[in-house]
Design a protein around this nucleic acid. Structure first.
Lengths: 232, 232
DNA sequence: TCATAATGTCACAATACTTTCATATTATCG
DNA sequence: CGATAATATGAAAGTATTGTGACATTATGA
């Protein structure tokens, strides 16, 4: 989250604009990957999934719309957020951009501020942990920026790992995550840590939530993993 | 989803525009709920979550931006898509709208076509990510991702095997499966488990379904096996 | 550097679940 | 209607999964 900055793939053929994008993106603390055509873009994507793709509408050979369509067709890349860059402003284009599966679009010339606002907005809804918003669930309140947690207004003392687990849970409620999924999401991809370790940290998290009665938000789903839910 | 049309909550104080929105929305086959201020909106939301919220920027007392912020902060409402309706077009407004967590915005006066295209786009990208792999049969609802089962809305408590059996049944209704076929499909191929074991789990499944009266969905076909069917 | 906190791992306890088995109940057919 | 086979049911034994406390190891900060 704050340890590894979100990676943004820029697909843009004009070097000047590509440079401008990269500068702004990195200015905001994101990692920028450059690609000047569809081939380069897919080459990168096949190796690692970016957290977001900035896609130029007009590209040599394969267009941005076509790239977006292909990304949406593949299960692996289906959920990667896409922001479309376009010079046209008329209504049909907007609609096409949205219909093609882009999460948002922005028209050239764009202001850096607007670009960044859109990037943050898209990241916030697609990768909730990435946005540093204060999140709430039931009686719990967690603020990533101040790194504080409170239950019913009373401050809680959590270790770093418990904090990250709770943050992940609050931003991904109602869904069961296996131990290995939690390891991937909270610890980082493919760590060499035993799965039972998750149990222990879940236990510590529950222990910290116990005084406020919020410990039942963290639910065991036998044979499947854990689920965070405000409702029993 | 296709059985019950998506519900769209309209938060708009001007009656004329509210009516216009409702007309268009219902024209598209959605269900429109009207609210003319923040109180009415939250009153509805506290009872049931809409599939999407159309939110006017300018509202009496509590603004649309403020409403969006509150919705995004709470885990329960965090994932409800929001489209912001605004009369202003200048950049700062756009940014505020996005920062507040809106999924999209549209400026007044809007064309019905654009409005509908945006609604569809937002619904398309938001719904599939949340567990809409939920399967239904009669009064039953089962969601693999949240690992929850409910009958007539009331949550059910099932063991792992019963959960898998019910999942298999709901996705393979109206057909008789022998005990060994069930063992293959639910337990896994060629397990060394006695066939009578199936009976026991069927019994437990029925037992769990009994309070809701759904136990007769699981039917015995003497000499052949079991069949799942909503109709007696 | 030392003191302190955080982390991961293990062993064992506590549960929840599965399977089997013995027995009761029900259906089917002569 | 009775004999027989198939299914239902309850409970006990067996198995797997999860909870928990203690401890060694590794970061972190004064």
């Amino acid at each position: 989250m704050s340890a590894t900055p979100p990676t943004i793939l820029l697909v843009e053929d004009e070097p000047a604009i590509q440079e401008l994008l990269a500068f702004n993106v990195e200015q905001c603390g994101y990692r920028a990957i450059r690609a000047s055509d569809a081939n380069a873009a897919f080459a990168y994507i096949s190796r690692a999934l970016p957290d977001l793709i900035l896609l130029d509408w007009m590209l040599p050979s394969v267009s941005g719309v076509e790239i977006a369509r292909r990304l949406r067709a593949d299960a692996r890349t289906r959920n990667v957020p896409i922001i479309m860059l376009t010079a046209r402003t008329d209504e049909r284009d907007k609609i096409l951009g949205l219909e093609s599966g882009a999460d948002d679009y922005i028209t050239k010339p764009f202001s850096p501020r607007e670009l960044m606002a859109r990037i943050r907005a898209v990241l916030r809804r697609r990768v909730p942990q990435m946005a540093d918003d204060t999140v709430r669930a039931g009686a719990l309140e967690l603020s990533p920026t101040t790194h504080r947690v409170s239950a019913k207004g009373a401050p809680l003392d959590l270790g770093p790992t418990e904090f990250r687990i709770l943050h992940f849970f609050i931003t991904h409620p109602e869904r069961v995550y296996s131990r290995s999924q939690l390891l991937d999401h909270v610890w980082g991809n493919h760590v060499f840590v035993g799965e039972r370790t998750v149990d222990v940290h879940i236990r510590r998290l529950r222990h910290a939530l116990e005084p406020s009665g919020c410990d039942n938000y963290v639910q065991t789903v036998r044979g499947a993993g854990y689920r965070f839910s405000v409702t029993a």
